[in-house]
């Protein structure tokens, strides 16, 4: 009898360990969407990037987002050129990175469909500058997939983005960044 129980417990432990190993709890996206917007006296500055990559670990709440600067598309070619060459120096600093975590992880049930408001915090690196940021985010779980949305503002000067004095009064000192990331469960 005792042996049977021990075997059963052993089998149960083995099955549990196996299940945990099967479900990594990680989500990823390779084609996430990120855009930014800034109003100016001349024309609004807006661009979109559809190749944002990210990994989110639902067990630890840790997340990393990487953005290639050269994947941002503008309506105007000239604006895209200025953005890459003058403001972002994208040949020197080709990518930006967010390295952070979901703050209230316990409030999110990743195995149940639902929408959760949360905050995410971490370090944002643009060019050669890294600053801590904290922003509101909405996480939606649906059919095993996850969508994350956030919108926040950064101060250009915090990231060494220098606005030429000629257009200084015409360009907003802040930039609004929006992210809309559709994650899939990692196998």
């Amino acid at each position: 009898m005792k042996i049977k129980i021990i075997i059963l417990i052993g089998l149960f432990a083995f099955a549990t360990a196996f299940t945990i190993k099967m479900e990594s709890g990680k989500y990823l996206t390779k084609n996430g969407k990120m855009s930014f917007f800034s109003s100016t006296g001349i024309e609004d500055i807006a661009a979109e990037n559809n190749k944002v990559s990210s990994v989110l670990d639902s067990k630890s709440g840790k997340m990393v987002i990487e953005v290639l600067i050269k994947s941002f598309r503008f309506k105007k070619a000239l604006m895209e050129e200025h953005f890459n060459e003058n403001y972002m120096e994208s040949s020197k600093y080709p990518k930006s990175k967010f390295d952070g975590k979901i703050d209230n992880l316990t409030a999110i049930n990743f195995s149940k469909d639902g929408t959760y408001k949360t905050t995410i915090s971490g370090n944002l690196t643009i060019k050669d500058k890294t600053n801590p940021i904290k922003t509101d985010a909405i996480i939606t779980i649906k059919g095993g997939k996850l969508n994350g949305k956030t919108k926040f503002k950064i101060l250009l000067a915090d990231y060494n983005i220098v606005i030429p004095s000629v257009v200084k009064d015409k360009i907003d000192k802040e930039m609004e960044i929006t992210a809309d990331l559709d994650y899939e469960s990692m196998k």
Partner: peptide, 14 residues
């Protein structure tokens, strides 16, 4: 395509 660099999952061209 145009080369944009290397992301988390490899090289990206757009």
């Amino acid at each position: 395509g145009k080369c944009d660099g290397m992301g988390m999952f490899g090289v990206v061209i757009t």
